[in-house]
Design a protein around this nucleic acid. Structure first.
Length: 694
RNA sequence: CGCGGGGUGGAGCAGCCCGGUAGCUCGCGAGGCUCAUAACCUCGAGGUCGCAGGUUCGAAUCCUGUCCCCGCCA
């Protein structure tokens, strides 16, 4: 057949930061990229998948310091952990480098020289908060203080979570360094900037006309950045900083976001050193190679503005495609440690099969920037019905009839089923190419449905009992089913490399080419069938969630002493409470606002001897504001255990005269059918008395 | 009128570009099969395709308006 010239495709995923472990959110990207690369290879293209650890920056420096070891020691340990996690999910990099490598240092210097040479680097004084005790300038996130606009306490240095204000760390009232706990002082230092405004015209054209970006992304950039002059990009940090010192600016280091993307180049060079060729073969201006970056939507501007600007200035090739995906939510919400939905790659691998997550993500990814949701109930049903019930089941129900006879010598009449699925191949390939894996999976599953219906209609189990004269027909029917299975295994090979290997072991040998989906096999031996994939048991998912909850529960306990995390297992919450007490009539936000709920600290608690249920509490709302109130929680809490803890009170409740005194408010607690008891509410760590609930 | 995405049977989605009987998976109900990892197959209930107008012989699909939800971190 006419084979088009082989494409040469360099593919990258964003570099994971060496400050933390890989979690299921990261894996959306690595799985997406890995599937794409495997697809290209299966189609006969040359594709290399490059990545590296992102190792520099303040966060690494601080963490290493806290752990009492060197940055390089920390980074080396995390690299091992990352590689093990990736391997566990069958993510097969061709090279995995590090931004802390000699190649990267040299390439940073070269790009820097190019920027200097074009007059794009300027120096300017920047005022930042300096922690004298720790001896370092503080990034925004290492400063906390009171919001200058709304006076909310304990806000980070860049914006206020309470009122949404954005500001500089130096604007904070009473700033505190989270490193040393001391008050940092403003200090000014020289920073180096890249004046990318000089490349504004180029970026305008490139974002719109190169075809590298989805038009929606180009439009977003036009609206948010390119509609006005581009701000200079601050690319240096004064010492101390873990990174590369800038050769022509002693005492200054490249900002981590400067050297990170250059890590793509360094990884390429390192790959070439091992496999031949040169950097210019891939990144040269006139190279015919394609460059595809897979990234998350949070780092869009780095890869669509700064990075192309750097490449342009350095005279290198620009990305062919920047493919942007959304975030992962778990059961519809952001991953959260306190909710027990912060799922690490390692925890997943301890409980579940990596192929299942690869398939689930593939079934969800449609090539857009929408967030994708890992709904664990859906995960279970989808994996079980699609992979186990449909695909694997095809082999499971027919392979054993061929163990002795092997495949029929000639592929039998199957009513056009194989040809139909073969014809689907081009549509499936187009979907893969567009990263619309969801469409590809849907199409593949339809083929699996048709195959199962075929088996059902032909009733091979009856043929098996019918005696020797039906043996030929039985072999034909089973041969069709097994060919249809293997055909599906070819289509799924980018997503499920393990399954495709097993399919190859069962019949026909290793799957190496997409073309194998186009012609059925005949006259080959069939191996003994071994189960290819186990179904997901709900208990496995529960165990994963329990494992995710544990560290959070510990942290919670140490903070609050008495409080413990509720068992909050997804999908198994009892219905007693909600059934016993249906929801109240709808109210408006105004109705809700009338009730002034505040965080309060219990400063005194005593029994009311004459009362059956009441404790007398004194709570602080901050400053001098206190309330004395009676709470119906006697018997559930020992008074002394309550002192000091934070609760929620209705602060504007009309005072009420009771037999034992005046109650000036009400403590909020949960109770209802399903469990006896009264459960006080506690805010997350960081809440302070007087804060309002809204 | 800031930009963009979305609103389709209980849940999650496809269909919309190129108008023509509303489809898939899960769940639910009934039946079948018993080869298969309580898997598979068939049938059924369930939707005025956010709302209101318009174009058209005909609109989920095109146009206008409107409501609601989500995202927009140099």
């Amino acid at each position: 057949m006419p084979s088009s010239p082989q494409r040469r495709i360099l593919v990258t995923s964003a570099l994971p930061y060496a400050n933390g472990h890989i979690h299921l959110g990261h894996l959306v990207e690595y799985i997406q990229t890995d599937v794409y690369v495997r697809f290209q290879r299966l189609r006969g293209q040359q594709a290399i998948y490059l990545c590296a650890d992102d190792t520099h920056g303040t966060a690494i420096m601080i963490r290493a310091r806290a752990e009492g070891r060197s940055e390089r020691d920390l980074v080396a340990g995390m690299r091992e952990a990352h590689l093990a996690d990736f391997a566990g999910f069958q993510i097969a990099f061709d090279h995995y480098g590090s931004t802390d490598s000699p190649a990267n240092r040299r390439l940073c210097a070269e790009i820097w020289q190019a920027l200097r040479g074009r007059g794009l680097v300027v120096a300017r004084q920047v005022q930042q908060l300096f922690d004298a005790a720790a001896g370092t300038f503080l990034a925004d996130r290492f400063v906390k203080g009171t919001c200058p606009r709304c006076a909310a306490a304990d806000q980070y240095g860049d914006n206020c979570e309470q009122c949404g204000a954005t500001y500089a760390p130096a604007d904070l009232v009473d700033p505190v360094s989270t490193l040393s706990g001391t008050r940092p002082e403003p200090r000014s230092a020289e920073h180096l900037f890249v004046t990318i405004e000089a490349l504004h015209g180029f970026l305008d054209r490139w974002t719109r006309e190169s075809g590298a970006l989805d038009p929606r992304i180009a439009n977003y950039l036009a609206g948010h950045f390119l509609g006005e002059p581009l701000r200079d990009w601050d690319v240096s940090r004064p010492a101390p900083y873990f990174g590369f010192e800038i050769p022509d600016a002693p005492g200054h280091f490249w900002y981590v976001w400067f050297d990170a993307p250059i890590g793509y180049l360094a990884a390429t060079e390192e790959w070439c050193a091992a496999h031949g060729g040169t950097l210019a073969d891939w990144w040269g201006r006139d190279s015919a190679a394609e460059i595809h970056h897979f990234i998350g939507k949070d780092i869009t501007y780095f890869h669509t503005l700064f990075w192309p600007a750097m490449l342009e200035a350095a005279g290198l090739a620009l990305p062919t495609k920047v493919r942007i995906h959304g975030f992962l939510t778990v059961n519809g919400q952001k991953m959260s440690k306190t909710r027990g939905t912060f799922l690490s790659a390692r925890a997943y691998l301890d409980h579940l099969d990596p192929g299942m997550l690869r398939y689930y993500y593939a079934a969800k990814l449609s090539g857009g920037i929408d967030d994708i949701d890992l709904n664990l109930e859906e995960f279970t049903s989808k994996v079980n019905s699609d992979l186990v019930g449909k695909v694997v089941n095809l082999a499971s129900r027919t392979a054993r009839w061929l163990e002795r006879s092997g495949l029929a010598a000639r592929y039998p009449d199957d009513g056009g089923l194989f040809a139909m699925a073969a014809a689907d191949g081009s549509a499936i390939a187009e979907a893969y190419e567009a990263c619309d894996f969801a469409r590809a999976m849907r199409t593949i599953m339809l083929a699996a449905d048709r195959a199962n219906a075929y088996v059902d209609a032909e009733q091979p189990w009856k043929l098996a009992k019918a005696g020797p004269e039906a043996a030929g027909r039985l072999q034909d029917v089973a041969s069709v089913a097994l060919n249809l299975f293997r055909q599906i295994a070819v289509y799924l090979a980018p997503v499920l490399p393990r399954l495709s290997e097993q399919a190859g072991t069962l019949v026909g040998g290793p799957i190496r080419s997409w073309e194998e989906s186009q012609r059925p096999l005949a006259g080959l031996p069939v191996a003994g069938f071994t189960p290819l994939m186990q179904r997901v048991e709900p208990g496995q998912v529960e165990a994963l969630l329990a494992a995710a909850r544990e560290p959070a529960a510990e942290a919670k306990t140490t903070q609050h002493g008495g409080t413990t995390m509720d068992a909050n297992t997804v999908g198994t919450d009892p219905a007693a409470a909600i059934e016993a007490e249906p929801l109240a009539a709808q109210c408006t936000i105004d109705d809700f606002t009338k009730v002034d709920l505040r965080v309060a600290r219990i400063v005194a608690a005593e029994e009311v001897p004459e009362a059956k249920k009441l404790l007398k509490l004194t709570v602080s709302l901050g400053g001098d504001v206190t309330r004395t109130l009676f709470a119906g929680i006697k018997g559930f809490h020992a008074p002394e255990s309550l002192v000091g803890r934070l609760v929620v009170v209705v602060a504007n409740l009309a005072p009420r005269q009771m037999k034992f005194g005046t109650s000036e408010g009400m403590v909020v607690a949960a109770s209802g059918a399903g469990a006896a008891g009264v459960y006080l509410l506690s805010p997350d760590a960081g809440a302070l008395p007087g804060m309002r609930l809204r």
